[in-house]
Design a protein around this nucleic acid. Structure first.
Lengths: 149, 149
DNA sequence: AGTGAAAACCATGCAAT
DNA sequence: ATTGCATGGTTTTCACT
């Protein structure tokens, strides 16, 4: 799908607040409500907008500990089984195959440092994982949606 | 704010799809539409729900390169000026103060590896930053919202 | 806190351009 | 592809429980 400047502005507006009416949204980008609606419909159909969701305060729902864990491995981790194993660990919020010394990077959120330890144990038990390096977050400056280029 | 089991289920439902009507949402948790609405209103007022937003496919909007960068520093980075300097770099999606060898971890998304290089230069120019270690993502397994505990 | 209903508002579909 | 309008559905409010 081809995205123009108006689409980009619509996406940025919706990232800020997806509860806006199409009338307001259209005004923000210089379009009628109907036209704004039609463009957003197409952005959803094309998968540019994956879903409408709520951003939850992690600490408020009991997951106040954040850490990034590098997984060193002795096997190729690009298989579906690896993906599933990581997805089944609820504390794992992101998982990426990375270039460089370690081969997998995961973002982990837990209720406590004790629970973090439990998650590290679970990560060690994933097939192919030989060791882990953990970076614990002390304070988050910000987490925001990707910039729409 | 105190969050009970019904709130947790509402939050999980809304993370999956925030366009659901309160009638459907209420049914999913065994509540009337009015009661579901009132609970969601309180969750928003208390800041448990930070905002309603759209999840955009990064590649579709031109930011297909993802990397994590560890910043080594020779000064305390917990100041507002540091926060601002990092926030002003559009490619920086997350920034955290971390324990361990490096003191700041940032998540970066760019249009190309050339643009990534430009972002690394910008990060080097932030006050206190002495060196950077970059981990480039080759493939993302998944990125999902935090689990509501 | 939850229910049920009324009123205002908005999304959605369509005819016209 | 955008506009303006009609309609059905949804949010929002309120009196009652």
């Amino acid at each position: 799908m081809t995205i123009d400047e108006i689409d980009r502005r619509l996406l940025t507006e919706l990232q800020k607040d997806a509860t806006q009416s199409y009338a307001v949204l259209g005004q923000a980008v210089g379009l009628s409500a109907g036209a704004a609606h039609e463009r957003v419909r197409k952005l959803k159909a094309a998968g540019v907008i994956r879903r409408t969701t709520v951003e939850v305060d992690p600490a408020a729902v009991g997951v106040g500990v954040l850490a990034y864990v590098l997984l060193d491995t002795d096997a190729w981790m690009g298989e579906e089984s690896t993906r599933r194993a990581l997805r089944d660990i609820a504390a794992v919020e992101e998982a990426h195959i990375v270039a460089g010394p370690a081969s997998v990077l995961v973002k982990v959120r837990t209720t406590s440092t004790e629970a973090l330890q439990g998650t590290l144990r679970a990560l060690h038990q994933v097939d192919g994982v030989t060791s882990t390096q953990t970076v614990v977050v002390l304070e988050s400056f910000f987490e925001r949606p990707p910039t729409v280029m």
